[in-house]
Nucleic acid binder design. Structure first.
Lengths: 254, 254
DNA sequence: TAGTGGTCTAGACCACGTG
DNA sequence: ACGTGGTCTAGACCACTAC
């Protein structure tokens, strides 16, 4: 792999360091991804070539890629190549939008921008975004409709430092998903999210926007979206009217 | 692997069938697990021995086990062996109990049995448990306390056919987790769960049990618990007071 | 010391997608 | 026909655990 590791002459004896070689390769691959060497949607060099680049056997290289594929950071297509996962509408829907009709199936939400503001990070947001308290953030509120009916109210918090020159205009005129916007305009690829759920009652404002009586029960979702190396890039608090929809969670799924 | 597959003499040419060899090995391993050949907590034969048993190379055998480990059905311990995942209190807490204090940390819940009844499966339960409508089921209601305070109200539905001679006494006298009970008494090992969440309002009964005002918002969790081969074995509907707790969901976590 | 899983390598062949 | 990922094998050595 590197000079220190290459001292041994016998094959299969490369465990000199404490970190397995394939983990190191994975780290280097992730780093290249984070630096934008391979952009979302494009194919990586072939496994043979990557093996040569990192001076590891193809088996070791594959093991590194295996893990990135398991984390849905890379996608393999037999006969075509290995690709950087890209935020098309389908991926966002399947991996980051967990609201489904109670009956089953899955539909693409339509988004309506309600407001766009600048603000300062409070203590909680700062901690979760790993920025300092009081740092400038953008606050975006959206209303999401499913089958034409309002179902979700989103409040998004973005660290302004990572999204230079973001404006209401950009948000209003986009015709892509929000994660596609981050990706295309800022090179930020959201690869994972962690969510905490609770129940709440609709206040007057939320109720009116969602077209339900005040005091109706709502599902509250607090999400942290992460990019490569588990760096947080977005906070989102969603209020969901679960009268006709549900949040679907299936861990351990193969 | 089998006669048909062994016709080829050259190594590395075993892809005669449509299913990869390691998938077939995985299926056979899962089958042995489901049949109780290796019980929860015990070590499987060594990889070398299993490779001989299924007449595959150790690499292929390991790839089959890799997937079962990723699904948390097996556990590997370097130097000790590969073990069947077992429902001790810790595993249940970490992999099947997603309620955490809003502040963080994780605590073991105490369970109080509220009622134990026989009933007939309605259409929905029958469909989810893959049994016929009207088939006999057990219905168990539990109150779960965290740090001494009531937080969760559980209604469990079990297909009676899979749990012969289950009685209130058994449930009342257990000093283990419920999934340990299934495991030890019925040889049923819950390995995965799928959950659907929504928000609801506390009715009078629930409110009284949880010590909150009627009309308080509650998180409703509908869980299907599955054993090997994704066979459903338990339904559970939980009502959670999320005033001081949250449901934690982290898909895609490595 | 012996046995187990963990890592790494090298090479052959198969299946798929593209031209 | 060619290049890509997918499967399978065989063997060497390392790291950990138990005795």
């Amino acid at each position: 792999m590197d000079a220190e590791r290459q001292t041994s002459e016998t094959p299969g004896a490369h465990t000199g360091g404490q970190l397995p070689l394939y983990k190191e390769v994975k780290r280097l691959l992730t780093q290249s991804l984070a630096e934008g060497e391979w952009l979302p949607g494009v194919a990586l060099p072939s496994e043979t070539r990557l093996g040569e680049r990192y001076r590891v056997s193809i088996g070791t290289l594959r093991k590194a890629i295996d893990e990135l594929v398991a984390e849905r950071i890379l996608l393999r297509h037999q006969g075509r190549g290995t690709f950087v996962a890209s935020h098309d509408a389908r991926r966002t829907l399947f991996h980051f939008f967990h609201i489904v009709p109670a009956g089953g199936g899955k539909e693409q939400p339509e988004t309506e921008l309600l407001s766009f503001d600048r603000a300062k990070a409070d203590a909680d947001a700062a901690a979760r975004l790993d920025i300092r308290q009081g740092a400038p953030v953008f606050r975006i509120r959206n209303l999401l409709r499913l089958a034409g009916k309002p179902v979700v109210l989103d409040v998004i918090t973005l660290p302004a430092a990572r999204f230079p020159k973001l404006s209401e205009k950009v948000f209003r005129e986009r015709d892509t998903t929000i994660y596609q916007l981050y990706q295309e305009r800022y090179g930020i690829n959201v690869v994972r999210s962690a969510e905490r759920l609770s129940a709440a009652l609709a206040d007057r404002t939320s109720a009116k926007l969602l077209g339900i009586p005040a005091g109706s029960p709502l599902l509250r979702i607090k999400r942290t979206a992460l990019t490569y190396h588990n760096v947080p890039v977005e906070l989102r608090e969603s209020l969901v009217n679960t009268a006709e929809h549900e949040y679907f969670s299936d861990l351990g799924k193969t």
